[in-house]
Nucleic acid binder design. Structure first.
Length: 329
DNA sequence: CGGCGGTACTG
DNA sequence: CAGTAC
DNA sequence: GCCG
């Protein structure tokens, strides 16, 4: 697949929910607001509109017909990942993604097997879930203390399987242990501090609020900036694991000078509360990873990524960062 | 069987 | 360099 | 785990 105007170097792929250990609730409301406002922008050249037509997922909310199946498989995927069985976990994750996009309830082993990404072993498991409502393998693999602890530790941002295992063999079992005795990297300290918030799903309504907040700040810096949330939000999911904000400017130049001023502005207002990676350069893209919180009482801390791209890479970047099913084939 | 994304940051 | 995240 |  090629996108003509610019070379697409270093585009990041985001195949599915990053929070593999969490599950979405289903349902509800589609957002026409952003799409609506988007169509009204008159300065979009037509070739870019065409790309958007490809890039834009259907406006409909994505239904999760096989939630009972993916929820069970997610448990195994997370357990395998925590045990450093990464390729097995990847196989599970691909199958889960495929099943999640499957447009109707799966009722048989054969039907499962017809889905690309689901092989014989997983089709057996799907069949067991369809028949009994659960997987015995989950009890076997996930319910021992080690598996539970490893997964708890991997919920700390910046801690992967190796770190989690290291903590485990040092005798740590709880987050309290980590706070008191573990030596954590700066990333992990932040990840621990906001553990509960960061590991909760974000309602898409709140994602929209965050998008608007960032957009307002951006427009205070430079008029005409385009601010758009990608990721699972853009795929129509009811909840998201984090917020992926893509920023560009139609004049093809302004994106170069916007990155730091925008972040500074968001810091000044107290919206950005912690930085994880302050600048990751990818060709002419710039990426920020951090933590934000909307103003007001009772708001949660949320993981926020900001990516600034040149205009010519905007549409394809939106596709990459959205990671649509279309793109996985 | 071997390959499974490729890159940038942190320490 | 290994580990991690995107 | 799955795929080619």
């Amino acid at each position: 697949m090629l996108y003509s105007p610019c070379k697409l170097r270093h585009l990041q792929k985001d195949t599915d929910e990053k929070n593999t250990s969490r599950e979405d609730d289903d349902t509800s409301a589609e957002d026409n607001t952003r799409e609506g406002s988007f169509k009204k922008r008159k300065f979009l050249p037509k070739e870019l509109k065409e790309k958007f037509a490809c890039a834009r997922p259907s406006g409909k909310q994505v239904k999760d017909f096989n939630h009972h199946i993916t929820a069970e498989l997610e448990k195994l995927a997370a357990a395998y990942k925590s045990k450093k069985d990464t390729w097995r976990a990847l196989g599970y994750q691909k199958a889960i993604s495929a099943i999640r996009n499957y447009p109707r309830p799966i009722t048989s082993r054969e039907e499962a097997l017809s889905i690309r990404g689901v092989g014989g072993r997983l089709a057996d498991k799907v069949a067991e879930i369809v028949e009994s409502g659960k997987l015995r393998k989950v009890a076997e693999v996930c319910e021992d203390e080690e598996a539970q602890t490893l997964q708890r530790f991997m919920g700390v941002w910046g801690a992967g399987p190796t770190t989690a295992h290291g903590w485990y063999i040092q005798g740590y079992r709880t987050l309290e242990d980590l706070r008191e005795k573990g030596n954590l990297t700066r990333h992990q300290q932040i990840g621990l501090k906001y553990y509960d918030d960061i590991n909760s799903r974000i309602p898409r309504e709140e994602v929209a609020e965050i998008e608007n907040y960032v957009r307002s700040a951006a427009h205070g810096i430079k008029k005409g900036l385009i601010v758009m949330v990608c990721g699972s939000y853009r795929r129509g999911r009811a909840t998201c694991g984090d917020v992926d904000v893509l920023v560009t400017h139609p004049d093809g130049q302004s994106h170069e000078t916007v990155f730091q001023p925008l972040l500074n502005k968001l810091r000044e207002t107290g919206f950005l509360t912690d930085d994880l990676v302050t600048q990751e350069d990818n060709g002419n893209q710039k990426k920020y990873l951090g933590v934000c919180k909307l103003p007001g009482e009772g708001q949660k801390y949320r993981r926020l990524d900001v990516i600034v791209v040149p205009y010519c890479e905007f549409a394809p970047a939106a596709m990459y960062f959205t990671g649509s099913a279309h793109f996985n084939r």
